[in-house]
Nucleic acid binder design. Structure first.
Length: 722
DNA sequence: GACCTGCTGCGGCGTG
């Protein structure tokens, strides 16, 4: 059998020799065999900087070189979710493509229109594009799609794990299905991904009609040693002389991270600001150069570039206190240690974060997990007593060590994204029949959970006079309505996800970043932002601008956010931990004390009968022992019966009143399958960008498909009563 | 109880 290297085209071989590579990496060789010897689709799974890009591109470019297409169009299409990733990859590909004389065209909002115009005149080579820009091509140049992509032999989807079953992922799949239908032939799909929780689901995601034909190449996990510590802290009383938990963690970070490159994930932007401020102050007090910097999406591009460059250059030690901005995508080089303040929301993201450390041979990956728990008083709530943050962080670490991570969630209807794609197809084609539209999007596209009746309901909602997004011509053709025209015309249409309104923060003519408009802001107030302290001088409401100047004190702003979704398996593990006497070796003394306390308090909660603990006359705690979706469903059902509910990880705090039935009676009714109105107290159902155009009934169906599990309610109630 | 991501076409003006 010939080696993978032998199979590649001459110019590619020449390029590889020039790189001084001793040989192709394992995943590159295996991917080359699959891509050169078969027509199978492929998923390449490896960590950042694992050589995935070359694994896909070297064989595909070889094919283009050896067997050039006679048709017009780009030879290879590459779709990535970040502009920075496209810029990065274009630079890397330029070299190798010069050998094959193929142009490399980066295409996103910041690419000059002259570059785009030239590529449109002579489409060939490699097109690197975002889902939004591809969407724009369909809408603005629908008739030219065959000319632009006639020659395309493969599409590479980068960061596949980050878009599985998300709004953008569904959009991307819809665009690919539409592309194949325009060309009347399939295009080979190659997905690049970090390690995935469930490879079978990923295959079905990449090629829904033929998952058996998807091959996988998975990197044998980097055998880097893992060093791990979980440190517990108790938030002290205000009048306590001891340093606060925040100060104690800052001091620990200061002492252990100084002098090297590190990432500290602080969860929320507000927390990032608090820790950045403390660490900057510590450096100033010790008269040391600054090396701790905040990094999150509300900070100016300038500041973020500065932090990313400092990390990548490796010239000066740099620790970024950050949110998930530094979790995926662009390569910032290897870091010594990954810090995590507070429990993360998913094992998948914890794994992705840890993958940033220990990449050099012989260097361990280091995870420092910090958890803050409240000081208990006689009136402390049971959720504080159970130390849920500590227990969740522990459960996540244990699952990480076992190699598990969350699979993509399936079954969601994605009606908001469906509305977007309906409008997009009509714009692309000028007009389309309902039957044809259904075939394109729901039968051949990604909206397979949507049946004809539901589809017609969506069309009807969009066609209502007050919505006026679409209308039907006399011959039955669906056209854009007056409001639909306006919506699609504006460039803000291309993205399928929602973005909040914000103020721009300006000091001395320089932009610091942005702040959500729901902050209560008036001149004279003090603010912590970008790791520094500011005085608000002026608020220009109409221009959405806040003018500030440096100050000596300040408080961090609020950034808002959605409640997260915790997987069933994580919550199940939390209860395993609470019900055991498990003492993990990676915990410090405080964390061990807190854990022991939690296990003891759990035993004292007296779940009897079943999983109900009565706290008082009308108050009780239910252990659902399951993730956010089912726990939220039960919470809504009980609220519909008149109870007041507080939700926690796998637990519900339930308060009755004079009107409510006994809790056991309410649960028994649910256990027997009695129909319930989950939406009785009209909870907010507007989560996604195009939700405001749908009817209440459709919004409820959408929520039921993705965020709730009504079918599991009876069984959950039975298991709680048992 | 959280985070992240993206964006066209054209008119107007200056310069070679």
């Amino acid at each position: 059998m010939s080696t993978a290297f032998d199979k590649l085209a001459r110019p590619i071989q020449k390029w590889i020799r020039e790189q001084d590579w001793r040989e192709l990496r394992d995943i590159q060789a295996r991917a080359t065999h699959v891509l050169m010897d078969s027509d199978a689709d492929l998923i390449v799974a490896a960590s950042t900087a694992g050589g995935k890009t070359e694994a896909a591109f070297l064989p595909l470019l070889s094919q283009v070189f050896n067997d050039p297409s006679e048709l017009s169009g780009f030879d290879i299409l590459y779709v990535a979710p970040l502009k920075a990733l496209i810029t990065d990859q274009a630079r890397r590909l330029d070299d190798v493509c010069r050998e094959t004389e193929l142009p490399v065209i980066p295409w996103h909002g910041d690419v000059p229109s002259s570059v785009k115009a030239r590529a449109l005149r002579h489409p060939r080579g490699v097109l690197l594009i975002t889902p939004e820009s591809l969407e724009a091509l369909f809408i603005r140049r629908g008739l030219e799609i065959p000319r632009l992509f006639g020659a395309t032999r493969a599409v590479i989807l980068d960061e596949l794990h980050s878009v599985l079953d998300s709004e953008r992922g569904i959009q991307m799949r819809s665009l690919l299905a539409r592309l194949e239908q325009s060309l009347n032939r399939p295009i080979r799909r190659v997905g690049l991904s970090a390690t995935l929780g469930d490879m079978e689901l990923a295959k079905a995601y990449l090629r829904p009609d033929n998952p058996e034909n998807v091959e996988t190449v998975i990197a044998t996990s980097g055998s880097a040693e893992l060093q791990l510590q979980l440190r517990g802290y108790v938030a002290g009383d205000k009048d306590d002389d001891a340093p606060s938990a925040t100060d104690a963690i800052s001091l620990h970070l200061f002492g252990h991270l100084r002098g090297s490159d590190n990432l500290v994930f602080a969860g929320a932007r507000q927390t990032v600001e608090i820790y950045s401020d403390r660490l900057r102050t510590l450096c100033e007090k010790e008269h040391l150069p600054q090396e701790f910097y905040p990094h999150h999406a509300s900070l100016s591009r300038d500041h973020r570039d500065f932090v990313e460059r400092r990390l990548k250059d490796g010239n000066a030690p740099t620790t970024a206190i950050c949110t998930s901005t530094l979790e995926l995508g662009i390569d910032i080089g290897d870091v010594t240690c990954v810090g995590q303040i507070g429990a993360p929301f998913s094992v998948a993201s914890l794994r992705q974060r840890l993958g940033r450390s220990g990449r050099r041979p012989g260097k361990p990956a280091i995870l420092r997990q910090y958890v803050v728990e409240a000081k208990l008083t006689p009136t402390s709530n049971f959720s504080d007593r159970l130390r849920l943050g500590l227990v969740r962080a522990t459960a996540m670490i244990e699952l990480l060590l076992e190699g598990w991570c969350e699979p993509p969630q399936r079954g969601a209807l994605h009606l908001s994204t469906l509305v977007h794609q309906i409008l997009s197809v009509i714009a692309e084609r000028g007009g389309v029949r309902a039957q044809q539209l259904y075939g394109m999007l729901c039968q051949k596209g990604p909206f397979r959970q949507v049946d004809t009746q539901l589809f017609l309901d969506v069309l009807r909602a969009l066609g209502q006079p007050e919505t006026a997004l679409i209308e039907q011509a006399d011959d039955g053709l669906l056209l854009l309505g007056a409001k639909g025209e306006r919506l699609v015309e504006h460039y803000s249409f291309y993205a399928v996800f929602q973005t909040p309104e914000e103020y721009r923060l300006i000091s001395g003519g320089k932009e610091l970043g942005t702040l959500p408009i729901d902050n209560l802001i008036t001149p004279g107030m003090l603010l912590i932002f970008s790791g520094r302290r500011w005085l608000i001088l002026e608020v220009l409401d109409r221009d959405r601008i806040i003018m500030v100047s440096p100050a000596k004190a300040g408080v961090p702003p609020l950034f808002g956010g959605d409640p997260g979704n915790i997987h069933d398996r994580v919550i199940e593990r939390m209860f395993d931990i609470l019900e055991s006497r498990h003492r993990p070796i990676y915990m410090d003394a405080t964390a061990l004390e807190l854990l022991e306390e939690a296990q003891c308090q759990y035993a004292h909660l007296c779940f009897d009968p079943g999983r109900i603990a009565h706290l008082g006359d009308k108050a009780a705690v239910l252990a659902t022992k399951t993730g956010s979706v089912r726990t939220t469903t039960l919470a809504l059902a009980l609220r519909a019966s008149g109870f007041t509910i507080q939700t926690h990880d796998g637990l519900l705090e339930v308060f009755g009143n004079d009107e409510t039935p006994p809790l056991i009676e309410a649960l028994s009714a649910m256990a027997s399958g009695k129909p319930l109105d989950l939406f009785g107290h009209s909870p907010n159902l507007l989560f996604e960008k195009f939700h405001p155009h749908l009817t209440e009934g459709l919004l409820q169906k959408d929520a039921l498909s993705a965020r709730l599990d009504p079918d599991g309610l009876a069984e959950l109630s039975r298991s709680i009563l048992r």
